[in-house]
Amino acid sequence: MSSEDWKKTMVAEKGKMLLEIVAPSRQVVRSERVDEVIAPGSEGEFGVLPGHAPFLTTLKSGMLSYREGADWHYLAVDWGYAEVGPNRVIILAEGADRAAEIDLSEVRRAKEQAELAMKEHRESLDYEKARIELLRAMTRIQVAEKHGQK
């Protein structure tokens, strides 16, 4: 990538941050005027304000929120990485969904299925897969119940 490309990815409004949240299959969020980000780091939740020290961490499954002016936005993210620069935050998540996009009934069904699969398999590779599925579903339920569609 040339430095021109880098510059293009770097623009943020003055005093604000650039936030990009990308999942393998799509770009979920891109905003140039973010004031605050709170993310579920693997070593504990952390908040980022403009001018934060460069910082690279892994994320666990959980709720990520960010503020544009007075508006808070909420997402469910599953594992990944967060790269924090002075005026930007890049989140590479394995999966990410905005709270409003989550379909609660569908996620509840996924949770039940995962629980069932865990009972069936026990301590095999499938068990681990089901456990991950369960965590994903639980994060989504949490986020959607708190901030999803009413």
Partner: peptide, 25 residues
């Protein structure tokens, strides 16, 4: 890639957990 991000390469990152652990995953 050899060419690291010119805006970020110069600064020292804080890693959490360690850089090795992040690289490993």
């Amino acid at each position: 890639p050899d060419e690291a991000d010119p805006f970020m390469a110069a600064v020292d990152y804080l890693y959490e957990p360690s850089a090795e652990a992040i690289l490993g995953s």
